[in-house]
Amino acid sequence: MNKFLFALGVSALSPLVLAKPTIVTSIKPVSMVVAAIAGDHAEIQQIVSSTASPHDFAMRPSDLRKISNADTVVWVGESLERFLEKPLKNAGKEQSSIEWLALEGMSLHNFAEEAHDDEGEGHEEHEEHEGHEGHEGHEGHEGHEEHEGHEEHEGHEEHEGHEEHEGHNHDGVDPHVWLSPDNARVLAKAVAARLVSLDVENATYYEGNLATFEKGLTAKDAEIRQALSKVSTVPYIVFHDGYSYFEQHYGLSHSGEITVSPERKPGAKKVAEIRREIEEHKVQCVFSEPQFSPAIVEILLEGSSVKTAPLDPLGGNVAMGKNAYFSFLDNLSGQFLSCLG
């Protein structure tokens, strides 16, 4: 009888013993790096849909619940996901979260000064992008409640004393850090350390995944560098100025961008300027992005023989799994090669 009661007790406790750590991530590139380390030993819950953009995202009640129940929240930082700052603070998760931009060893780039000078152009034309009204219909976003006036949306309120928020002051920093394999390595190490602290029994598993990721990243990086070296001098224009980490890492250099802030459409002056750049620099390709309407690219290239192709900085079509980040790098380099080669 005692043995039966003991077995029953162990059985009742087993869900607690076997419970996986819950890691909430902000965007898909973050999820990719986390998945490489977590494997099937942790549950990953992503906030921003793989088909949405973090630049104009609005939080929902279901997202707030994810944050509240998370063991750890992994995000890029307030300069990309400002909508997360207040919810993290309110949930008491600010100190336990992993902010990619703030990790030791990160290589950060500042946006070009001249790009910010141009940002004022087109402010009067701050229109909503097609397909971004409330993000309805985006797959992979469970519990998508209707946005009624956005009264409940955290992150759309003013942040009192925001400039005094220590550790999150990255004004002028390009937040697209996942486009650098070196920065991905930094996050992978931080995630491994956190998972080991949360799930000591599986420490060897996480450490092994980290070693595998680092070895695979070195090989993939060398492979892509060799492939892109063939198009390093081909001039192109990107949709928005968000690829500097990838471009500098692999020796590419765009001739210009359509907009600095992707949520803003460029004004007539900027459009005319880009058309001049296309002619003067003999631009071979103008890249669009699947998260935003391609209409402006079509207007720019009307009557032109310049090629265009989508460049997806978020890896929307990449299948999640331990090798997702490698697939993302493959896809992105392939998109460059398809239009520049």
Rank of each mutant, 00 (worst) to 15 (best):
E128M: 12
G303Q: 10
K86P: 00
N2Y: 11
P235N: 10
P235D: 09
V271K: 09
H141I: 07
A38N: 04
S107T: 14
G155M: 02
F326M: 15
G149Y: 13
G9I: 06
M32N: 08
S293Q: 14
G122T: 11
L301Y: 14
G122H: 12
T72R: 05
Q45G: 00
M1A: 10
H150Y: 05
Y205D: 10
A70D: 06
R82C: 03
N317W: 01
H168A: 08
V17M: 11
I23N: 09
S261Y: 05
I44D: 05
E154N: 02
L301F: 11
M1R: 04
L13P: 02
G122N: 11
A268Y: 04
G316Q: 10
Q45A: 09
G92A: 07
I98W: 00
E81S: 06
V286K: 15
R276E: 12
H144V: 07
V74M: 10
H141N: 11
S304C: 03
V283E: 03
I274D: 06
D71C: 01
N169H: 14
A19Y: 03
A184C: 14
D221H: 15
E263R: 01
E146C: 04
E154L: 02
V196P: 01
S31H: 12
A115C: 07
A7W: 06
P87K: 00
H162M: 04
V297A: 14
L228E: 03
E163Q: 06
H165S: 12
I237Q: 09
H176K: 02
N183P: 13
V260L: 15
I274W: 01
A35W: 06
E247A: 00
I299P: 00
L18S: 13
V260I: 15
T212V: 10
E136C: 03
E154M: 04
Q46M: 14
L337S: 07
